[in-house]
């Protein structure tokens, strides 16, 4: 608040880098309850629509020689399938639909967030924390169900000297519980940072002399954000696979 006030007083510069993340009800009112239809709802719905368009409508012809949309859908399928198989192993393929869901949602939420004036659902900790906690809980439950108490061997580094093992165990336990934190903050932080930086550059465009640089900078940041959108979805998915591998084969 203070920044905005000062900026407005000094040079007519107005920075509202975080305003784009405000959750607003779509149909009037200011009260955001549990079930209110907000811009979050709208953009999540659009993400669902995009997923359905690509993965269901795009493949509806079941062509042997695929159309463009079908190729993209098959590419996404093959990409995630191979990732799960390579990173987490063959027995992790039972979780393939779940990981695919995460990937498709994140990638489309990220890309839809790049549309000007849109709302980036994945830039909110509320969203990413839930995504990361879902992964964390799934991985922990799967680890204990598949391996029983042997899953605790993940924290007991058998290859280290005996004296070091308790220390390492404490570190391993801490790092295990930090996983959902970094997992969620990485995704939301990356997107929030990129979008906020674009907004800051956009604020500078109000000064006529700086505006060309500002526009170029916005363009460059936008290109970087396209890359980041995909890479963050990829990283979230591949880390999920890595965690899943730990749960399925804790000895490694």
């Amino acid at each position: 608040m203070a920044v905005e006030a000062q900026g407005a007083e000094e040079g007519g510069l107005v920075f509202h880098p975080m305003d784009q993340f405000i959750v607003k009800p779509l149909f009037g009112g200011s009260e955001v309850g549990m079930f209110t239809i907000t811009n979050v709802t709208l953009w999540m719905f659009l993400a669902v629509l995009a997923v359905v368009a690509l993965m269901v409508l795009g493949t509806s012809r079941r062509a042997i020689i695929p159309s463009r949309t079908q190729s993209v859908g098959e590419l996404a399928y093959g990409f995630v399938y191979k990732m799960v198989e390579d990173v987490a192993g063959k027995d992790a393929l039972a979780f393939f639909p779940y990981i695919m869901t995460l990937f498709m949602f994140i990638v489309f939420a990220n890309f839809l967030g790049l549309i000007p004036m849109s709302f980036t659902t994945t830039s909110h900790f509320a969203v990413t924390v839930v995504l990361a906690l879902l992964v964390f809980v799934t991985v922990t439950v799967v680890g204990f169900v598949k391996n029983g108490s042997k899953f605790l061997g993940l924290f007991w580094v058998a290859s280290a000297p005996l004296a070091l093992r308790p220390v390492l165990a404490v570190i391993e336990v801490i790092s295990y519980f930090v996983r959902p934190v970094s997992h969620s903050i990485r995704l939301a932080g990356n997107l929030m940072a990129g979008h906020a930086v674009i907004k800051v550059f956009a604020g500078f465009a109000a000064i006529a002399v700086v505006s060309p640089i500002s526009v170029v900078a916005i363009t460059a940041m936008y290109g970087l954000e396209i890359l980041v959108s995909f890479i963050q979805a990829y990283v979230f998915t591949i880390l999920t696979c890595v965690y899943l591998k730990d749960a399925l084969h804790p000895s490694h």
Binding site: M18, D19, F21, I22, V23, V32, G33, M34, F35, T36, T38, V40, T41, M44, T121, S123, H124, F125, A126, V127, V130, L131, A188, M192
Partner: peptide, 15 residues
């Protein structure tokens, strides 16, 4: 806005 916990319920629900 990310730290406005009033809105978390709504987001989590729709998510």
């Amino acid at each position: 806005p990310q730290l406005n916990f009033d809105h978390w319920g709504n987001q989590i629900f729709w998510l």
